[in-house]
Amino acid sequence: MTDTEKPQLQPRRKGLTRRQKRGLSRGAQYVVFVAAVIAFAVSADWGRLKNQFAQADIAERMFPDVITLALKNTVLYTVTGFAVGLALGMLIALMRLSSVGPYRWLAGIYIEIFRGLPALLIFIFIGVAVPLAFPGTEIVGGTYGKVALALGLVAAAYMAETIRAGIQAVPKGQMEAARSLGFSPARAMVSIIIPQAFRIILPPLTNELVLLFKDSSLVLFLGVTLEERELSKYGRDLASQTANSTPILVAGLCYLLITVPLGFVVRRMEAKAQEAVK
């Protein structure tokens, strides 16, 4: 390529080059960010914020109950809800894959309904509508049973879809190998397919656990005794007692204490699964 040809091939554009524009745009973004931070720092009433959210003596008064009672109950609600959801979700996933039409439709309808409704509505349904509609019926386990049922009903819909996807992600050859060894379809499913499906869906299932952990705060609307309070209810009660927001902050930190490490574990598992594929 000679020098005389060059300008013809690449006509000089007017104004800034692409690279210069990119630099300018990035500079502008930094300026906006720094300005926003300064504006917040200057305008915020730091004394008031500290007073409202970070009063050490109020935070101190919450211990050890916030852990031994509230966090314990949150974990308990989550784990029982997860267990119910997993059992029900497995059943629905298998129904969804059934060769019997009505089972498939029923499972499909369940999934559509419970994925489409707010979890809060399910809690109100279990807590208010069921006792009103069927007076005298008692859900086993009192509040704990109600929460496990409500959370389980919601979680099952999501988990069923996850489990179904996991089962379908196991290569077809696995079922063929099992069948050719003389496994019945049911036995092959239990011994060969489902264990592999669970390894595939461990990350999304753990994610579901995180979601349930947060959704357990809806217990707030069931009307619970002092002993049955979980983090959100406990934080709110204390906030109104002390007329201070510190308990909310502490309760929030307790949630993060569980959800952040769990999220980390999920990302680790996903990265590992990604590696295994390669």
Partner: peptide, 27 residues
Amino acid sequence: IGMVFQQFNLFPHLTVTENLTLPQRRV
């Protein structure tokens, strides 16, 4: 009837020995 596949189709979640023992025990 034993069957051997092009893609092996071993059970990846089991060790070699478990691949051999699980079908014997279950079936």
